[in-house]
Write a protein that binds this DNA or RNA. Structure first.
Length: 403
RNA sequence: GGAGAGGUACCGAAGCGGUCAAACGGGACAGGCUGUAAACCUGUUGGCGCAAGCCUUCGGAGGUUCGAAUCCUCCCCUCUCCA
């Protein structure tokens, strides 16, 4: 276990952090010289990690290397509520098996960043299941409605007249109680969690504990560059996505979003930093920085070789407009000697959900057969092998069987 | 319990008896351009049909009407104020 001086640790911890409450308290905790208990909450209903999660996880990695104990709190009970964002509807509760399975995949994915052998994984149902109705009433008595309404999304929802279900108020309270149960010294989360994390401090004090220090990390914007990255907004890049997806999606982010991604997400790397500075001065091409970032991300989750391959694939398909190396093959039965029409081929290849859609794609000139644009939807495709392309990025090798 | 306002396509939001498969914006997809799957410009965006056209859609179930997203009845859900 590293034994850096508390002041030096504080310095490291503070880097890239959005808010730290409070420096004095954290320093005092560090000075006691005991490993700190660092709480990090995770939602078991969405077990797929994306790049946004990497931001706090990287911070946890640093804390772990400083010798502190990382506690992954799986909010299996709170998942019944769902963090009130106003977007998500009340979620169905997950079965015990699902929770355990999700927690396991979580551990597996997290192992890319953390030493999971040293991570303590806990479930909040451990204590919530033992709490009685009087216990909940007591917990609720420690907070006021006015205080809860201070939370930004509650406030806006209340003002705009969008529904707030009563149980949503419970979320911050229970999350706060989790800190009591875990005796957390520090809690790490995204900036959107600030309210909940601060609430936990108040709950801890109400239960006679020292308040946890709070560390929030910037939220990563999604690939749209506007909303925070989230799977449900479909602007996320999952860490388990295939290399060329991670690479390609990264290349598709707006140039405006790029610098921020590099700031928030990138691991230290001299090349990246040089390009970053160059782009800021308007000297370097944003594309090159984007390439470097995309490469680093793929390398991180799939290794060096995959990164090189993903880049080669991208260059081939999008810069040189050639067909990729690996193309899925689709066999299509032939309804008659003339073969299926092009619409049927698109459908069979899974490139269109309906005949109308397929027809539109063809009429718009988005469909190529053996590199040649075909604009007649009812053109029949004789038995044989073809290279089918829809748009710039979807390819299939199509084999039309003889009738 | 009382009074009022609402529930529209992937999302937001118009429409309030026919001209509504439903304006507009976002998203998505396609085309052009390019330094990139960026930006920008153009187009498409319920299903079936070559087409004429037909079928399904505006919280749910009934009803009025030649004709309903639009009017009526009941039900479900949400918001605001009062108790």
């Amino acid at each position: 276990m590293s034994r850096k001086a508390p002041e030096a640790q504080l310095e490291m911890v503070r880097a890239r952090v959005e808010t730290l409450v409070s420096e004095e308290e954290l320093l005092a905790k560090l000075r006691r010289g005991k490993p700190l208990r660092i709480k990090f909450g995770c939602d078991p209903s969405t077990p797929d990690l994306h790049l946004g999660h990497m931001v706090p996880l990287t911070k946890l990695r640093e804390l772990q290397e400083l010798g502190h104990t990382i506690i992954f709190l799986v909010g299996d009970f709170t998942a019944m509520i769902g963090d009130p964002t106003g977007r998500s509807r009340t979620r169905l509760s997950l079965s015990r098996e699902e929770v355990l399975r999700n927690a396991e995949t979580y551990r597996e994915q997290v192992s890319v960043v953390l030493d999971t052998a040293k991570v303590e994984i806990r479930f909040n149902s451990e204590w919530t299941d033992r709490m009685t109705p009087p216990d909940f009433v007591r917990l609720a008595s420690h907070q006021t409605v006015a205080r809860l309404l201070e939370r930004e999304d509650f406030k806006t929802r209340y003002r705009k007249g969008t529904p707030i279900a009563l149980h949503e108020f419970l979320y911050p309270l229970i999350q706060g109680y989790d800190s009591v149960a875990l005796e957390a010294d520090v809690e790490v989360g995204g900036t959107d969690q600030l309210f909940n994390l601060l609430m936990a401090r108040e709950i801890q004090r109400a239960y006679g504990q020292e308040a946890q220090a709070v560390l929030t990390l910037p939220l990563l914007e999604g690939t749209d560059g506007v909303e925070k990255m989230s799977k449900s907004l479909k602007n996320a890049i999952g860490v388990r996505e295939p290399p060329h997806e991670i690479y390609g999606k990264t290349m598709s982010i707006h140039d405006d979003t790029l610098l921020r991604w590099v700031d928030v997400l990138a691991l230290p790397d001299p090349d990246l930093e040089k390009l970053h500075a160059g782009v800021q001065r308007g000297e370097a091409n944003p594309r090159d920085l984007k390439r470097a970032l995309a490469r680093q991300l793929v390398r991180r989750f799939h290794g060096e070789q995959a990164a090189a391959e993903a880049e080669a694939h991208f260059d081939r398909v999008f810069r040189e407009h050639r067909a990729p190396v690996d193309i899925p093959e689709v066999g299509i039965p032939s309804p008659g000697p003339e073969g299926p029409d092009l619409v049927q081929v698109l459908l069979a290849a899974g490139f269109a959900p309906s005949r109308s859609e397929a027809r539109r794609l063809i009429l718009q000139g988005g469909v190529r057969l053996d590199q040649v644009t075909v604009e007649e939807p009812d053109r029949s495709v004789a038995p044989g092998d073809y290279l089918l392309q829809v748009g710039k990025r979807r390819f299939a090798r199509v084999r039309v069987a003889p009738a």
